[in-house]
Design a protein around this nucleic acid. Sequence first.
DNA 1: CTATTTACTTCAAGCCTTGAGTTATTACGC
DNA 2: GCGTAATAACTCAAGGCTTGAAGTAAATAG
Lengths: 409, 409
Amino acid sequence: MDTPADSSDVRRRNLALVLRHIAAHGPCARTELAAATGLVSASITALAAELIGSGLVREAGLASSGSRGRPRKLLELRAGRVQTVAVEVMPDRLAGAVCDLSGTVTWRGERVLAAPGDPRPVAEQIAGLVQEALEATATPGRTQVHTARLVLAVPGAVIEDDLIADSILLGWRRIDLAALVRAALPAGSCPVSVVNEANMAAFAEYHALASRTGTAPRAFAYLRVGPGIGGGLVVDGQIQTGGHGMAGEFGHIPVAFDGPACKCGDHGCLVTYLGLEALMRAAGLDPDLHDQDPERARADFDRRLRAGDPGPARALEAGARALATALTAVSRVADPEQVVLGGHLAAWSDWLVPTVLRHFAGRRAITPTDEPVLSTELLGRHATIVGALRHGCETVFNDPASVPSLTRP
Amino acid sequence: MDTPADSSDVRRRNLALVLRHIAAHGPCARTELAAATGLVSASITALAAELIGSGLVREAGLASSGSRGRPRKLLELRAGRVQTVAVEVMPDRLAGAVCDLSGTVTWRGERVLAAPGDPRPVAEQIAGLVQEALEATATPGRTQVHTARLVLAVPGAVIEDDLIADSILLGWRRIDLAALVRAALPAGSCPVSVVNEANMAAFAEYHALASRTGTAPRAFAYLRVGPGIGGGLVVDGQIQTGGHGMAGEFGHIPVAFDGPACKCGDHGCLVTYLGLEALMRAAGLDPDLHDQDPERARADFDRRLRAGDPGPARALEAGARALATALTAVSRVADPEQVVLGGHLAAWSDWLVPTVLRHFAGRRAITPTDEPVLSTELLGRHATIVGALRHGCETVFNDPASVPSLTRP
DNA sequence: CTATTTACTTCAAGCCTTGAGTTATTACGC
DNA sequence: GCGTAATAACTCAAGGCTTGAAGTAAATAG
């Protein structure tokens, strides 16, 4: 913000503009790029030359448009030129993935954590998984691949740019995971970022929704209760982290100050109404099952719900009121245009959303139409890692010049 | 976001950097500017020359630093070169003010609205007040004054850049106030912006706090219940408006889904616990007094509170629980580092804040230290117009080149 | 009075975008 | 088959910007 600008910033921005257009709209000619970006064709020539030089883009044949005139030379993204590695750090295991610039996942891997509590061994296992990923995706003889970034998605608050402040789930406090992983990787490896996992899921859902509808909402919220509780806020395409890396923790929005006690120490959090354990209790099912085997508990609840058992339906009906309240709070604070529900909120949205909308409708007559549009997640379980990968790719989309020139074409 | 950049953007940014530094740190020499901005001294020479040319800055004598060497030529903000006009539109009256670039208010004026409901007459009366302001501040013979912007602060949601979507208080729906005022002003007048009034108060409090503490919080929230209910969210120095211009409406955060009915059509909004009428009712005072004379009601409540009457204290004690819940919701969504209370929340903060903090402390042992720092407003009643003026000045600080060169020195 | 130190300015160089003019490559009309 | 029009892309000088080096200005210390 307070650094001076020079012509390299201009170049960075315009390269990004061109690269983004090619990535988003598929192969296109320089003329189209000029029209779409507002740059003059001479500039496109220069920018395209640089992108071709760094291998991010390639000329992919001609497109005779039927009409007369010189045919267009199409510029195509060389997605394989860049890859991003993401690792999702869970309490008991790691999940890793690699994708190229197009977002195509080229590798997936998992690893059960040997010493979950201890940050240093975890960092070493992360580094090991990353090495495995890089070896698996290295194809000798193929184009040189530039690894843009390693993104570590953790369930915890991340502050001060990539320092994990706290993670209850992992039992960590002020752990600089990025530094630990950097130390465990060979020198000269790619840059490392640490981000919140639910925020990445939100980021992924945001982009999935944007590409489905064709327009990106200015303010967007993702709220997940299910395997993992959390969410994220995206404003103008940027993940909002807040002052302590805790923005978007929608699961712990209090919906009643005299509500049930929550594990977080507060009372009446949304999860105390919509968490699976709470739902089971409200449905008259045995909540102990949840502790023993959450997945079976979920399946059991789901089966009974779909079978027409009134207990689960009643539980969701009550939960929907809490959800409506929480979503109202989100609207009052951040006013998203669109809210996406995830986890079992998405799975059981047929029972939840109508009640929520009814609640909204009750007041829409008086207040302005400021309710968010509700929908359910598009990516589900993979959202976190997809978002983390996408987040890593943003590095390149924001600054294409960070990719070095190809030494040999 | 998707427009190309060229060297004029570089110039804009660097001019802004220099002007901001001079404005924030008082008269300073080119060498200091070079050190502070990171620009090279040759660039500072050129940038300063442009700022001097447009009259935003002037050379103000030498500063012999005591040590040897050529003395520094100080550059000083010429605050009077630019002025900003702001009008706060209230249901029954207008309040206007003019300030210069330093934020010094050079004129204040009021006008009782003749036809409050009707947008066009209101726009004409706004234009009249603005004309009055411009005539009152015009000093023939003095430096040419550039009027950078007219900012209209309204109690309502503002979307699509300066179109008022809805204002319940004014009874307006989708009124393009900026266009109406532009039409009522002489051709070639300054640009007109429409903004939410509580957001501007938040903006003012944000800057007041930042200049008092020396550092600006990354995420900041202002919450006012008093004469006018509302607030605002400032992230990285930017007012957050949300998708429908409704971000920061903290007064209508629901704190209990089965709480009292609110005028907004919802139940359990924060104002149903901390609005003055609710407080009076909870204190066992006659709530009808509030309708008749809110100011007297407030004074009455205040007197009894300070006299040790247990009723008002009890009402605030209960309200504080609601406030703690609402602030928790704000933290979960936006995670501000700092929250400023305004209106009677500020006046009675001695009764509210300890209870709120006690509530926070009850869970701090378990969750990370993500609670916002609480404080009370620094500007009070004038915050809205001060914020609106400041917002107008941002036009110039963001783009000093928008100020034309002086025709005569 | 000179040397030194510090502040500021000047100027050529390097990037970047732009606009005009040039070249490349096709289809259409005859 | 050939000239012409049309479209795409490239080349190049010009202009704006920052920069680094060299030069000038103006004080103090000895």
